Amino acid sequence: MFKKSKKVSFLVVVALLCFMFSSVMVAGASPKRIGITKFETNNFTVRVPGGGHYDIGLGATDMLTNELAKNKSFEVIERDQIRSVLDEQAFGASGALDDSTAAQIGKLVGLKYIVYGKILSAGAEENRTSVMGVAVNQLNIKVQISVRMIDSTTGSIVWADQVDGNVKKSGGAIQGIGSVQTGVSASVYDEALGIAIKKIATNISKQSPLEGCVAKVSGRKLYLDIGREQGVQPGQSFMVYKEGETITNAAGEVIGVEKGDICKVKISSVEGQMSVATIEGNGAALVEQGNKVRSL
């Protein structure tokens, strides 16, 4: 009876420590403020059927804003606030930014990070072929974006890359009877742009991963203390890890902690403040209540 009581007490203590860590992490670690400027387009416009024009730079900014807003590790600042600072500080004369001016703007708006980019190209290539008497028109729509993420406090480049978004559309008809045109509408460009933007948002989110704690272990199923309110989504992948000894510098100041990865898990269901994950691959036997998790 005494041994059983000690075991129960131990589990209660572990659960309490896990809860305390999670509360400090979620409540104490305030979201990082991030801003996105309108993506430059080098003064080119995308023409769509009907004689209209599509502002692909504005579309890219709005899409990235919506994607990053899903990550509760960030507080996304509306582009209108950044635009007003650009105008007030006379940065808006040319509309062009570089790492230095981006960092200055970030400081003025009170951002931790600022993201700016350029639409390098956006267009469609048409290929016409004939298969068994059927004329086939195929369009390859490609959007190419260059993007940078700047730390406003240091002016350093946190992440930079060149990303593509590709979409293929096709249509056809029997030769001599009629033809089906494969047109390029704004929605098609949005589709290609959306693919590129999701890649950008994923890489930006990796710079500030969502973290939590394993609240309960049930075989290959884990219950995490972070859920929908913290930005967790079904299908999202996390790494389970265990913290070791603290790392100090020459002055004896704590600068980090050793982290040992255990296994990868995938979120299967999400509730308000908790989620359920399934262990992928090996490592299930090593997972313990109180282990930490970070988004991948």
Rank of each mutant, 00 (worst) to 15 (best):
G183E: 11
M239W: 00
L16N: 12
A122W: 04
V134E: 09
V24G: 15
I200M: 04
Q144R: 08
N43L: 01
S187V: 04
G244S: 05
I114E: 06
F21L: 03
E40T: 10
Q233T: 11
I200R: 13
V167P: 03
E229N: 12
G92L: 01
V8R: 09
S237I: 10
L17T: 06
V257W: 04
K198V: 12
D190L: 01
S170H: 08
V46W: 01
V115M: 04
G117Q: 05
A103Y: 02
N166Q: 09
V163H: 08
V143C: 10
T182R: 08
N127R: 12
G171M: 00
G283F: 02
F238R: 15
I141H: 04
D98R: 08
K107Y: 01
T45G: 14
F19C: 02
Q175F: 10
C263D: 05
K32Y: 06
N42P: 06
A124K: 08
S73A: 04
I34P: 01
P234T: 12
S5N: 15
T45M: 08
V76M: 03
S269P: 00
G290W: 04
Q289Y: 00
I157K: 01
L193I: 15
N127P: 03
I226E: 07
S30N: 10
V217K: 11
L108F: 00
S268D: 12
A60S: 12
A135V: 13
K70Y: 04
T45P: 01
I141L: 07
Y189F: 14
S295A: 12
D190F: 01
K118R: 13
Q181Y: 11
Q230A: 06
F91N: 13
V24M: 10
K118C: 07
R148L: 00
V143K: 07
K72V: 02
S170Y: 10
S187I: 09
G165H: 00
M274V: 04
F39I: 03
